[in-house]
Design a binder for these strands. Structure first.
Lengths: 140, 140
DNA sequence: CGGCATCCCTATTGATACTG
DNA sequence: CAGTATCAATAGGGATGCCG
């Protein structure tokens, strides 16, 4: 693909390398679960899920919450998560139109795990930074 | 950077946008915890941690376990995880030389959360695939 | 407001070859 | 064995403009 922008290219199920009889080993390349993991833990996926774990968000509010995400990336991320059944998209027929995003049951379970990971990491930032500093010093 | 290969560019602490007084909000762009999250949940980071959660691995064994990872990516991933203090690297002075990778205490905590997420996703693959199929059908 | 399409640049990744 | 160096391919992502 040189100039064609495929929406959720990394999320495609129609991968010829996928063996349908072997569906649940993340360590196998091209496995469905590995793709789902990527979508849920990718750069923006994890943050979107963590944000939605706080409650439903409208598009622009979510964009404000997830600092640094572009319109385009947030849109793609949400589509992928919706496709995987983690996020529910509700269009409110108002003027101007509003779209509300929320977690599905499965999405809530996933978001909970991710939030746990985030909280752990946030609490350990000092230790992590110390490790980085030491590592960098060791190699000058 | 057009052709210069920076080792762990995404892991740098020396980001001018990082506010050292604000260390623990993943939602803030350039935050240390967001970077740590990226390193731990990135494409290969999560799988490497999950593999090491099964026990120590030598480089090539780990490469075999994490199907599809290139030498280069595994090397970089492990360096980043070591720098963040999640992975311990032990060089055995034998002939031929062996290097064993294992989890630190912090790494074990992180790996546990990631493994929980992976197990959840693996168990829900059927539901996820069904959702994808339905989603794709809805847009033809 | 929400968000898709296009253009275009850069970071990440993979293959391959080479070294301690 | 355990990597590093180099080069080429690709995916990620920002900016802009348009539409329901």
């Amino acid at each position: 693909m040189t100039s064609t922008d495929t929406p959720h290219s990394a999320a495609e199920t129609a991968d010829p390398n996928v063996d349908p009889t072997l569906e649940s080993d993340v360590f196998a390349r091209g496995c469905n679960s590995r793709m789902a993991l990527q979508n849920a833990t990718g750069r923006w996926g994890a943050l979107a899920l963590a944000a939605l774990n706080e409650g439903p968000y409208r598009f622009s509010a979510l964009r404000r919450r997830v600092d640094g995400v572009s319109e385009r990336m947030l849109s793609q991320t949400l589509q992928t998560l919706e496709r995987d059944g983690l996020v529910h998209r509700e269009v409110l027929e108002t003027i101007p139109p509003k779209v509300e995003y929320s977690l599905t049951e499965l999405g809530a379970d996933v978001a909970e795990k991710i939030t746990a990971l985030i909280e752990l990491l946030e609490s350990q930032v000092p230790k992590i930074v110390a490790s980085q500093t030491e590592y960098d010093a060791r190699r000058q």
